[in-house]
Design a protein around this nucleic acid. Structure first.
Length: 659
RNA sequence: GCGCCCAUAGCUCAGCUGGAUAGAGCAACGGACUUCUAAUCCGUAGGUCGUAGGUUCGAAUCCUACUGGGCGUGCCA
């Protein structure tokens, strides 16, 4: 049941003598103050302007005259400049609750025309240590896939694993030069991670060494520029010119600052290596490490026997590593077709582009130049290696052939926006027009200091450790003796562990999903597991309370199937407020789909849980004024539990019966 | 240089295709537990929605300029 949609159909009828434009009929939204009813129609004001002459309030009166909503609403009221306020009839709300009790979809209807949608998400680079930044794509993508599927679409999930890139060149190089085969065989995952970090550090060191001279020059240039700007701004008397000079001065200052911090960063990397004699010796012995790593990668791609063997040996271990994280997060994929899967198709992609005259040689690389973009899309490097653009093109055509999707959703970091703009533009150029391609971008995870957490720099908290931390924190709260003694029958250790896990993992997912996907957000473990405020624990706790009441009342969820027929009114505003929210699940899910934004569902669940808390405080079930009223309240409790569980499930978050 | 994104309460963030008095949470202060689980609820306080213009009945939302920050910008992904 999507109430605004139902109402807008009625408005479309009422407006048909005034306009053909259906957008007016759809201008219905929920009110932000109950005194204006439940929903408001805002069409009268813009329409009066469109039609000219007629006053908005008069037009509103005319619309109301034509409007037939009496089975849903009390008589509409006109307010303010021309708002039409709609208040749902209590009898209607109660009918809907009764219908909802015998509907396992919480009255959320399936879409009329299901689409086949591929959701491409998570896609980590295996062999690189995973950190908190990787969790966004995974959690957002999983939630979108679940939601779209529930809405009735045919969803195919695919984890486009980075299993064929430079990181394997790094590991192979590390293994060949620094690896201890016995150690690696015994304890592959941490050993390989160690090798990755070591070689990466050597590469960074080389880069830093090479860059210091240029960086120093940059600083010198910036200093000269700055002093010139200073002199200039002092000598100018004209206020307008002075302002401009001031601006130039500020710009020069920030340029200098940025150059200095770059040099500082480089020096830090250098010092880290040179202060460690063993590391320094390695760095000296591997002066060409970056070039050599690329060579290893090229050899792998060209089918070098040794490198291919190592890749085959290492890959399963790398997959195990990330699969442990997926297991912990209860995330599954229909397909895991990594980059390596497409390797044999890449040459064909480039050939095809060349044949069509879309790609051509430029500075030794094969490039596609697209209208509206300065930089080309490089599909083959001058050393012959392919790039992610090539793989993405191969992946796209494979998916079209294999799955015939109506839509492909890429849940990928917003920093890759330009790449996807190019990819989508090129797809259009080569005739892939029938499929809707969507880049569901998301913002950066920031550290506590507000700086972006970058993949390649600094020490990062491992993802697995982070999940364990969250569960531990949750356990401390769950096992708080003061609380746990109140629970009857007592929780045994196994149940406590279960609760800790569900709450801890839920906290991490919820924290991510509660922010709008496009905004950067500040990652704070303390906050998300604090279990105060807008957190998963609050929703999970609300759910547990619904189950507690059912238990106490001696009812199972399935056995609550009706509200006493004599009930035709609410007995408390909190009952009505909760009932209305329970009927708005579909609205929330529609927004999730429309904007590919799970935070709309989070907001809805939080609102609903808050309404439930108020209801809980004011409306006693077991001590209700009459048995009939008890049936209404029991129904609300049951339905609220179902809505919260369903909503959390669509976020990929589990619930427990008590906590 | 060019392109994209962001700027909302002390802090972290919402704010739906423009709608009525801009909302939560945290932190602060004051209340409510012989409880269907107080991991809760009620109340108080906190804002020139970065600045300046524009569009109109009406702007946090759309347009322009500016300020400040982030990201990207030919051979990583």
């Amino acid at each position: 049941m999507h109430l605004p949609k139902q109402l807008s159909l009625r408005f479309a009828d009422a407006l048909k003598n005034l306009t053909d434009d259906v957008t007016y009929a759809s201008m219905i939204r929920s009110t932000n103050d109950p005194k204006f009813g439940d929903y408001q129609a805002n069409c009268a004001m813009p329409l009066s302007k469109q039609l000219g002459g007629k006053k908005p309030r008069e037009l509103a009166a005319e619309i109301v005259e034509q409007l037939k909503v009496d089975e849903f609403c009390d008589p509409p009221e006109i307010a303010g400049p021309g708002f039409i306020n709609l208040r749902l009839k209590n009898a209607f709300l109660l009918d809907q609750l009764r219908a909802m009790l015998v509907d396992d979809r919480c009255l959320v209807s399936k879409v009329e025309s299901p689409r086949r949608i591929i959701v491409d998400f998570s896609s980590p680079n295996v062999a690189k240590p995973m950190h908190v930044g990787h969790i966004r794509s995974t959690v957002i993508g999983d939630s979108l896939a679940r939601t779209l599927r529930f809405l009735g679409h045919e969803v195919i999930t695919d984890n486009h694993l980075g299993d064929w890139g430079t990181q394997f060149g790094i590991i192979i190089y590390g293994y060949k030069h620094f690896g201890d085969p016995e150690q690696v065989a015994k304890d592959p995952v941490p050993e390989l991670a160690k090798l990755y970090r070591l070689v990466n550090q050597l590469i960074e060191y080389r880069k830093a060494k090479r860059s210091t001279e240029t960086l120093a020059e940059n600083i010198a240039v910036a200093e000269v520029e700055l002093s010139a700007c200073q002199q200039e701004s002092e000598s100018i008397s004209d206020p307008k010119e002075g302002k401009k000079a001031k601006k130039r001065l500020a710009s020069a200052q920030s340029k200098l600052k940025s150059a200095e911090s770059q040099l500082q960063g480089a020096n830090k990397k250098i010092a880290a290596v040179e202060s460690d004699s063993d590391l320094f010796a390695k760095a000296e012995a591997h002066v060409n490490v970056d070039e050599a790593v690329l060579q290893e990668t090229v050899k792998l791609h060209q089918g070098d026997v040794e490198n291919l063997r190592l890749w085959e040996e290492f890959l399963p271990h790398c997959k195990n590593e990330i699969n442990r994280v997926y297991d912990a997060l209860s995330i599954e994929f229909d397909h895991t077709l990594g980059e390596s899967f497409y390797h044999s198709m890449l040459a064909g992609v480039v050939e095809n582009l060349e044949k069509r005259g879309l790609a051509r040689d430029s500075e030794g690389a094969v490039c596609v130049f697209l209208d509206g973009f300065d930089a080309p899309m490089i599909v083959q490097k001058k050393d012959g290696a392919y790039l992610y653009a090539t793989t993405d093109l191969a992946t796209l055509s494979y998916r079209l052939e294999q799955f015939h999707p109506d839509e492909i959703v890429y849940v990928v970091d917003t920093r890759q926006s330009e790449h996807f703009e190019k990819l989508f533009a090129l797809a259009k150029n080569i005739g892939m027009e029938d499929v809707k391609l969507v880049h569901v971008n998301f913002g950066t995870v920031l550290g506590e200091d507000g700086r972006p957490m970058k993949t390649r720099s600094g020490t990062l908290i491992g993802l697995e450790g982070l999940l364990a931390d969250a569960v531990d924190r949750a356990r401390q709260v769950v096992c708080n003796p003061d609380r746990i003694m109140k629970i009857d029958p007592p929780m045994d250790a196994a149940e406590q562990s279960e609760v800790a896990e569900v709450v801890g993992l839920g906290a991490i997912k919820y924290a991510d999903l509660s922010h709008h996907r496009t905004s950067d957000y500040r990652f704070s473990l303390d906050k998300m597991v604090s279990l105060d405020g807008n957190t998963s624990a609050y929703i999970q706790y609300s759910f547990a309370r619904t189950q507690g009441i059912l238990r106490k009342a001696g009812w199972s969820e399935q056995s609550v199937t009706s509200i006493d027929p004599s009930i035709c009114e609410f007995t408390h505003p909190a009952e009505r407020a909760l009932a209305l929210l329970l009927l708005r699940m579909e609205e929330a899910l529609a927004t999730v789909h429309q904007d590919y934004a799970p935070n709309a569902l989070v907001d809805y669940l939080y609102e609903t849980a808050k309404a439930y808390a108020v209801f809980n405080d004011n409306c006693h079930v077991l001590k209700a004024e009459s048995e009939e009223i008890a049936t209404l309240r029991l129904a609300l409790v049951t339905l609220c539990g179902r809505v919260l569980r369903l909503g959390l499930d669509l976020l990929g978050i589990r619930v427990i019966a008590r906590m």
